[in-house]
Design a protein around this nucleic acid. Sequence first.
RNA 1: CGGGGCGUAGCUCAGCCUGGUAGAGCGCAGCGUUCGGGACGCUGAGGUCGCAGGUUCAAAUCCUGUCGCCCCGACCA
Length: 480
Amino acid sequence: MGKEDAGITVSKNDDFSEWYTQVVLKAKLADYAPVKGLIVLRPDGYSIWESLRNTFDKKFARNGIRNGFLPILIPESLLGKEQKHFAGFNPEVFWVTHSGTNVIGDRLALRPTSETLAYTLYSKWIQSWRDLPLKINFWNTALRAEIKATKPFLRTSEFLWQEGHTVHSTQEEAEKEVMKILDIYKNTVEEELAIPVTTGKKSNKEKFVGAVYTTTMESIMPDGKALQMGTSHFLGQNFSKPFEVKFADKDNVEHFAWQTSWGVSWRLIGAMIMAHGDDKGLVLPPKVAPMQAVIVPIYRNDEGKEAVLPKVEEIRKELESKDIRVHVDEREGLSPGYKFNDWELKGVPLRIEIGPKDIGKNSMVVAKRHNLEKISLSFTEIGKIPRILDEIQVEMLKKAREEAESNTLEISDYPEFKSKIEEGGFFNSPWCGKLECEEKIKEETGAEIRVIPFGSENANQKCIYCKEQSISVPVFARGY
RNA sequence: CGGGGCGUAGCUCAGCCUGGUAGAGCGCAGCGUUCGGGACGCUGAGGUCGCAGGUUCAAAUCCUGUCGCCCCGACCA
């Protein structure tokens, strides 16, 4: 490849979709698998997932949630036990129908989600109020056949996620858990990935089919489309009844339990790529970056090399002692310019350049990936690096928040809604609560209710569609 | 599922119409010169032309079938 197409060849503004795919592939986060709709994670991509997983695991543990493991095959008889749930997933289930040449009678589903399997076991494990609450999280993959065009991380037929399943003795406690999880999701996504989210409830139409209600966090992407970042469901007794998840209370009366389920997927990585990337490639938030700083030594000849490398090594060790994930680019035969572009493509937050000039001045050039700013730091100021990384993390969230705000509009006039929806964005528009209006709006504009933000109840306005009294001001948007 | 396009080197593609030695650029390997924003020269490796049949003295090229992938229209994290 020549200079022109060594990096990202399209602009994020001109062809967002192509830009996204190129960043994923060229930054070496993932690659396509031999089977349509499936992707392979490469170490830099998987490392981001591991980082998120570690953060979530710590927060889950603090909340009394432990990890377990569930098998991938679920018999059809189990999957069909909760009818609405089953109907919702049926078109996209992969089925295993043979073992070798033998036909399997009760065919096996590759899990689209594990509620039915988990709760079959839960009903065995739970007998008494003393067994509650039961809170288990599962890191695994789910499989859902995607007929429509797929996109790495955003829509694939198999995706990495976590699914948490909790059981409680009271409705109140279960509902509290739903909110607690949503809160963990929100602060993790904002603090680690630097992506602002809007939390609230899904409409009845958009909720998880098996749930009493679904809480969600939604983000707006730079192309104006909404992306669901995670959901936390209150299941009520919708599953505990068919699966007989029952417990004897202190008064020795048997009750059906109250349940929750919740999940986030590697879609979060896709959101991170879209939210922060630019025309030079990926931009990683320091907290999840596999490498936080890369040192590029520069020298012309052996003498230069001998002068530069010991200093580079010294700096590397100092940074490592401060728990900075640092890498030295020792590749021979590549020009500094090539390396700069290469690391920018891969999104490493800080690039440190050390060459003969710097040795003379006792300083180094530090380039920030997120704003392409270059500063000079003396070798004695190396202690500032961790703080700079923290600042970058904060600046990235701030910038993403400003962008999201500028893409959020208050619109109560339907013609205006229709004319502006083409450009995308989050539209805060009053709604009467009726399904017909929600459906008509979707049909006529492609926009759906992404989230009804907490605290958006409002009876003082008129529904944007039917002009009757509003009950809330949901976020309408076109989605991924 | 309905409509269009494409399968030739690791990647992007030319060659096919009009059958006759399988090509280019980039990438890759070695050597040398380079090195502060995508350096250059030389040498070299790398191919069952998606697969299976057929026509022919001869098939990447023509015919038939088949498989796979990509793009556009109804569901989902």
